[in-house]
Design a protein around this nucleic acid. Structure first.
Lengths: 116, 116
DNA sequence: TTGACATATTCCAATATCGGTATGTAATCT
DNA sequence: AGATTACATACCGATATTGGAATATGTCAA
């Protein structure tokens, strides 16, 4: 009878726009936290917190460099998302869009059928 | 200074496991709400609420059939997710994993450089 | 050592989200 | 018409999540 925990999985980690932005900024390049603070305009603690979530789901990896921590993306953590969404890809390809229209027409023509 | 709104975008709509389950059950097939209630074990209001969120981001479409409402997936709404995550796909392919290792080695060898 | 710098963590308040129960609305059936 | 079925919405309580400010930790520099 309460809110379900979310931050523990990749889907939610990435659902936060700020965290996507951070991942995008990291891109394939390593960056220290401060870079991300500058580039995003977020406060430093906010960035650290986002990075923590991303770390916990494995979406980023850290490397220590003196007093800086260099973060970089670990894209493999995003694979589950890719795999899941890919099963729907066909439904938006143009080829299937055309098919959809045909189906829609058929549906409206036999609107009274006892399907399922 | 508060929690940010989420439910309004596809990434968040899909971040909820229950909603992914519903989308998966709908698959390419139309289904009335009650089917989803049976199949998921969720309460009927819960299913309706999830469907609402999915509707608002365009991930499902409804068709009225008497007193039933037949829902179906509109996969195209998931395209932004697909597009976003695809830019990271290379980072988990084996080919690029090998490349990553090389890069990591180079990085550690020139650890003091003034990267931006 | 003392101070500056880079990052992480803790504490706090506001609120969106989730789950549940109860109710509303509309269509079908007798 | 009344009863029943199918679904949506409203309301409520609990809590996770966000964001902010302050603080802690750790590293370098003088």
């Amino acid at each position: 009878m309460a809110r379900a925990a979310t931050t523990a999985d990749v889907f939610n980690a990435v659902a936060e726009p700020g965290r996507r932005q951070i991942l995008d900024l990291l891109g394939p390049e390593e960056r220290p936290v401060n870079d991300l603070v500058q580039l995003t305009g977020f406060t430093q603690p906010q960035v650290s917190k986002h990075l923590r979530v991303l770390r916990e789901v494995g979406a980023v990896a850290v490397r220590e460099d003196g007093r800086r921590r260099l973060y970089r993306v670990n894209g493999r953590a995003l694979k589950p998302i890719h795999d899941w969404v890919q099963t729907y890809e066909q439904t938006w390809s143009d080829r299937f869009d055309a098919l959809d229209e045909v189906v829609a027409e058929l549906d409206s023509k036999e609107a009274g059928d006892d399907r399922e």
